[in-house]
């Protein structure tokens, strides 16, 4: 029983990180109908920005909560800038091109970030500094152990998701985003600067990925340039599972996937962990392509 609860706890903490990445996919897909393959690599860059900025400020020597907040802020801003550049240089020139060309470009950007990362950051794993160590040891009762870092990651993720929910549903920008995702042309006829809104959407999604990068660095302190590939793909699966384009759906899908993975690792074979996400994807697309919370769109001729 304790073991089971332990797996559940691990699953939720893993899922909350997938959720942060999945939100970026879902935002971008909602607005452009594009799978931003490079998103997982933005997440990787977020972890590296966190690593180098905390070394720069010397936070690896004296950890504190303030340090964590500052580093996360830097990483989020850095990733937002990267997201802006990717959109501006690689995707915007192709706004009117066939979908398949944009898809190929997205794959190209993703691979470029991965391998340029190997070139400039080094292919060997780096150790992410413990910039924040919560007071006290593991929490929990009896044999059940909960790492306070895991709890903190969950809290921060939830806070960021709430903030995103606020931005999307309560602000002018959010309303513009929803309008653009509904229909580009009509939105621009109503005076919405669609290109700028799309840029903001990319920046928002990339900032969340940057935050996820720092949080992953805290829990799994080994970071390397290819670390974004699998979490990126899995977060995408999570977004599809919840219904792509749907913010709540992405979070629910991500937590579900995190739980499923943690249970597969716990009770079956750890080696099948990476295949699970894709199996889930194939099944969901065959049974309910719109996802759990998605609404199917009928295709117009």
């Amino acid at each position: 029983m304790t073991e089971f609860v332990q797996h559940i706890v691990n699953g939720i903490s893993l899922g909350s990180i997938y959720a942060l990445i999945a939100l970026g996919y879902t935002l971008v897909f909602g607005i452009l109908q594009l799978i931003n393959f490079a998103h997982g690599d933005v997440f990787m860059l977020g972890a590296f920005i966190g690593l180098y900025s905390s070394k720069f400020f010397g936070f690896d020597q004296n950890p504190s909560l303030g340090a964590l907040v500052l580093i996360m802020g830097i990483s989020m801003i850095g990733c937002a800038a990267i997201g802006y550049c990717i959109e501006r240089l690689a995707y915007r020139p192709l706004r009117r091109a066939p979908r398949i060309n944009v898809l190929i470009t997205a794959v190209g950007v993703s691979l470029f970030l991965e391998f340029a990362g190997q070139l400039f950051l080094g292919a060997d794993p780096k150790f992410f500094p413990q910039i924040y160590q919560p007071a006290g040891g593991d929490m929990g009762a009896g044999a059940l152990k909960v790492n306070p870092l895991q709890v903190m990651v969950l809290v921060i993720s939830l806070a960021l998701m709430t903030a995103l929910q606020y931005v999307v549903f309560k602000t002018r920008l959010g309303r513009a985003m929803r309008a653009v995702s509904f229909n580009h042309e009509y939105a621009s006829l109503m005076g919405i600067p669609t290109d700028r809104v799309i840029s903001y959407t990319f920046m928002l999604g990339s900032a969340l990925a940057g935050a996820a990068g720092v949080l992953v660095g805290l829990i799994y302190p080994k970071i390397e340039p290819l670390m974004g590939v699998l979490p990126g793909l899995k977060a995408f699966v999570a977004a599809v599972l919840g219904g792509i384009g749907n913010v709540t759906g992405a979070v629910v899908g991500a937590i579900t996937l995190g739980l499923a993975e943690s249970l597969v690792v716990g009770y079956w074979a750890p080696t099948y962990r990476d295949a699970l996400a894709f199996a889930v994807l194939i099944v969901i697309l065959l049974i309910k392509p719109a996802g759990l919370f998605g609404t199917g769109r009928t295709e117009k001729v």
């Binding site: 190929i104 470009t105 190209g108 691979l111 470029f112 391998f115 340029a116 070139l119 292919a123």
Partner: peptide, 17 residues
């Protein structure tokens, strides 16, 4: 270092643009 993949991916982006 594996330059190949960097060149491939850049080639892909430039080609598409």
């Amino acid at each position: 270092l594996d330059f190949r993949m960097i060149i491939y991916s850049l080639m892909l982006i430039v080609l598409m643009l």
